[in-house]
Write a protein that binds this DNA or RNA. Structure first.
Length: 600
RNA sequence: GUCCCCGUGGCGCAAUUGGAUAGCGCGUUGGCCUCCGGAGCCAAAGGUUACAGGUUCGAAUCCUGUCGGGGACGCCA
C-alpha cells in the first residue's frame, strides 16, 4: 500500500486536473492535519491553484470536492477556511489497511524503485582509535543506508562506502617512528605479529596512537625526521614491494579490525568490503588532474605553485576567486583530489545515480565546491543527485565540543563501555530477576540504543549536549522509553499466552470504535509516509518523533481500553493493535539501528 | 572583512519545509486510577517564535536589515 498522503494526493490532483485546462503541475499538497478538528488529512493545494487561475478559492475547492472520488476511504470531504479540503478516514477502511499491514512483513509498505545510491559515512583514520568525532557520521550514515534499503526494497541498490584516511604524510611520519624502533628491536607493528600470528587479536592501538602523536610533534621540531617521513611517504606511495608498504598494510589491517569491532558493538552495518580509502584512489589521482586541466569547461591552472580549480561564485576573504587546491606545490595530492577521484569511481564504476555524504557541517563549503566542480567538468550529469548531509557538533555539559577532562577526544570504545555500564544499572533496577547473561544483552541494547537515539532524535544540523541522564531516561523521547514500551507490549502477549500466528489467521475484521483505538490506528497507518519522508529528506528525527508519538497514542489506548480482560468481540481487535504497535516500534527502531529486547 | 548555519514557554526539543488556534517531553499546580510491569491518565498555569521592517488569502518558516551564538574562508581532513 502506498502512504495515505500519496493516495489522497493523487486523487485530489486528478480532480483538480478535471476542472482546469491548465496542464502545468497540479500539486494537491496533502498533509496530515495538525489539529484533529480539521480531520485526519488536509489538501492545501487548491488555494495555490485559485491564485493562479484568479478564482475564488472556496468555490474552486467545492468544485474539486464535487469531482473527487474518495468515498471508499473517507467520510465526505469538507471545504473549510480559505479553501482547505479536510478528510476524515473511515473506520472500516482503516481496519482493512491495518489487517493488510499486519499480514505483511513490510508492514504494508510498498517498495518504491529508487536510484542506485552510494552512502559515504564513518571515515575513520588509520593508526587512530575511533572517537566522538566519528560518532555522528557513523550513526547517521548507517540509518540513511538502512532507510533507503528498506524504502527501495532492494539492499543491492544502496552501497555503503567507508572513505578511510589511510594515506598521505601522516603514514610516513608513523613509518619514520617505526623505522627507529626497529633499530632497537622495539618495533611497534611487527611485535604484534610475533606475539600472535593473527595480530588482530592484540590491538594496542593506544600505543600506535601515542606514537602517532609523537610523530606529529617530531615532524614539526626535527627537520631530519621530517625529511625521513616525507621520503617514506614517497616510498610507500611508489611501490607495493618495499618495507614501507608492508608495514603500512599491517597497520591498516590492525586499525580496521578494531573499527570492525566498534561497528559490530554499535550495531552499524559497515564491512571490510565497504572500505574504499584514500589509498584506493592513489593511482587515479594523476588522471584527475590531467582530466581537469584538459577539460575546456574547467578553469584549472597553477597558482603559487599549486594546481587549483577556480569555480565561479566562490570567493576568498579578500574577495578574490577561491581556489580548490587539487595538487600541492610539492606535488602531493589533497582530500579534494581523492574526493574527486572517488566521485568519478562511484558514478562510472559503481553506477551511482545518487551520492550521499554524511559529514559535519564544517565541510559544507568543501562539498559545495566539489559538487560544482564535477558538474562543471561534466562528470556528474543531470541524472545524478549529489547530497551533503551536514550535522552539528556533539557538545559536553559545558557547551563546548565534547572532550575528556584532560582535553582529549573521547574514544568510542570508552564511550560505548560507559553506555553499557550505565544501562546495566537501569536494567538492574527495572528487572532484577533477569539472568546475568540476559541483563548484559539488554544493557548492551539499551546503552547503545540510548546513545544512537539521542544523536538521531533532533534536527541534524543542530549541535546537541551529550547527557547520559537524559538519553538513558525512561521518560521522554528516548530509546529506553521506546524499548520499554515495546517490552511492555510483549509482556501482554506473554501474560495472555496469545498465539500470535493463530491471532493473525483468525482475525478477519477489526472493530474500531473507541476514540483511542481510532487514534492509535491512524497513527499506525502513518508509518509509511514517515519512512517516505525520511528517505526523501534524509532527516532521521522525523522517524524518532513518530515513534515517540506512536507510543503516546498507545499509552492513551492502553489506559482506556483493557486488552486481556476485554470482551471476546473486541479482544482480538485490541490484541492486533498491540501487535502492530510492537512491530512498528521494533521495525522503526530497527531502521535506526536500535534493538528491541523482549524484556527489559 | 566575506559567506554559511542556528536563535521557539523556566529547561530540552518539534512544527510533515508557506497552512488553520505554534505542539511534545522534563519541571510546576490541582485532580484520577483496588485494573494487563504506570511507558500512567485528565486538567491548569506558562509564548509578541531574538528584534525591526517587508512579501500575501496566510509567515516560526520566504526577503532586507540589526543583535546574539557557532562555523568556514590556498597548499590538514
Amino acid at each position: 500500500m502506498k502512504p495515505i498522503c500519496d493516495i489522497l494526493e493523487q486523487r485530489v490532483s486528478t480532480a483538480m486536473a478535471e476542472i482546469t485546462a491548465d496542464d502545468s503541475v497540479l500539486a494537491a499538497v496533502v498533509k496530515p492535519s495538525q489539529n484533529p478538528q480539521f480531520g485526519d488529512y488536509q489538501a492545501n493545494g487548491v488555494m495555490g491553484l485559485a491564485k493562479r487561475l484568479k478564482a475564488n478559492p472556496r468555490e474552486l475547492a467545492e468544485k474539486v470536492v464535487a469531482k473527487l472520488d474518495v468515498a471508499d476511504m473517507c467520510e465526505p470531504p469538507e471545504v473549510a477556511g480559505p479553501g482547505f479540503i479536510n478528510f476524515r478516514l473511515r473506520a472500516d477502511w482503516l481496519a482493512a489497511r491495518l489487517l493488510e499491514a499486519a499480514n505483511d512483513d513490510r508492514l504494508g509498505i510498498t517498495p518504491v524503485a529508487g536510484p542506485k545510491t552510494v552512502v559515504d559515512f564513518s571515515g575513520p583514520n588509520i593508526a587512530k582509535q575511533m572517537h566522538v568525532g566519528h560518532l555522528r557520521s557513523t550513526i547517521i550514515g548507517d540509518v540513511i543506508a538502512r532507510v533507503l534499503e528498506f524504502w527501495y526494497g532492494n539492499p543491492n541498490n544502496v552501497i555503503r562506502q567507508n572513505h578511510i584516511g589511510d594515506w598521505g604524510l601522516q603514514m610516513g611520519m608513523l613509518l619514520a617512528i617505526e623505522e627507529e624502533l626497529e633499530k632497537n628491536k622495539e618495533n611497534l607493528i611487527r611485535a604484534l605479529k610475533e606475539d600472535d600470528s593473527d595480530y588482530v587479536e592484540f590491538v594496542p592501538l593506544e600505543k600506535i596512537e601515542e606514537a602517532y602523536k609523537q610523530a606529529n610533534k617530531r615532524f614539526n621540531e626535527d627537520p631530519e625526521f621530517a625529511a625521513r617521513a616525507r621520503n617514506l611517504t614517497y616510498k610507500l606511495q611508489s611501490t607495493k614491494a618495499g618495507w614501507a608498504y608492508t608495514e603500512w598494510f599491517g597497520l591498516r589491517h590492525l586499525t580496521l579490525s578494531e573499527c570492525q569491532r566498534i561497528y559490530e558493538r554499535m550495531n552499524v552495518i559497515l564491512r571490510p568490503e565497504n572500505v574504499r580509502g584514500e589509498s584506493f584512489y592513489n593511482d587515479k589521482l594523476p588522471d584527475v588532474i590531467k582530466a581537469l586541466q584538459e577539460n575546456p569547461n574547467v578553469d584549472c591552472h597553477e597558482s603559487d605553485g599549486a594546481q587549483c580549480v577556480f569555480l565561479e561564485g566562490f570567493k576568498n576573504k579578500d574577495g578574490e576567486s577561491l581556489p580548490m587546491i587539487v595538487q600541492k606545490s610539492d606535488g602531493a595530492y589533497l582530500y579534494a583530489t581523492t574526493d574527486l577521484a572517488a566521485i568519478r569511481y562511484r558514478i562510472d564504476e559503481l553506477h551511482a545515480k545518487r551520492v550521499i555524504y554524511v559529514t559535519d557541517l564544517r565541510q559544507k563549503l568543501h562539498f559545495q565546491m566539489l559538487f560544482a566542480c564535477v558538474r562543471q567538468a561534466g562528470w556528474a550529469g543531470e541524472d545524478v543527485t549529489l547530497d551533503h548531509v551536514p550535522f552539528g557538533t556533539v557538545l559536553g555539559e559545558d557547551n563546548k565540543p565534547f572532550k575528556t577532562r584532560s582535553g582529549e577526544n573521547v574514544k568510542l570504545k570508552d564511550l560505548l563501555d560507559e553506555a553499557v555500564t550505565r544501562a546495566r544499572k537501569v536494567v538492574e533496577e527495572k528487572n532484577p530477576d533477569l539472568s546475568d547473561e540476559e541483563k548484559q544483552q539488554v544493557a548492551q541494547a539499551v546503552g547503545i540504543g540510548a546513545v544512537k537515539y539521542a544523536d538521531l532524535s533532533n534536527d541534524l544540523v543542530k549541535d546537541y549536549v551529550f547527557s547520559w541522564d537524559r538519553m538513558l531516561s525512561l521518560e521522554g523521547n528516548t530509546a529506553p522509553y521506546l524499548q520499554y514500551a515495546f517490552a511492555r507490549i510483549r509482556s501482554i502477549f506473554r501474560k495472555g499466552e496469545v498465539d500470535e500466528a493463530k491471532l493473525l489467521s483468525d482475525v478477519k475484521y477489526l472493530a474500531l470504535t473507541e476514540p483511542d483505538e481510532l487514534a492509535l490506528a491512524k497513527r499506525l497507518l502513518r508509518y509509511g509516509e514517515v519512512v517516505e519522508t525520511v528517505a526523501r529528506d534524509l532527516r532521521p528525527h522525523v522517524l524518532t518523533t513518530y515513534l515517540f508519538e506512536l507510543s503516546q497514542a498507545f499509552s492513551g489506548f492502553y489506559t482506556n481500553c483493557p486488552v486481556l480482560q476485554a470482551p471476546p468481540e473486541v479482544r482480538p481487535t485490541r490484541l492486533m493493535l498491540c501487535l502492530l504497535t510492537a512491530r512498528t516500534i521494533s521495525h522503526g527502531l530497527g531502521l535506526l539501528g536500535i534493538q528491541t529486547p523482549q524484556r527489559l
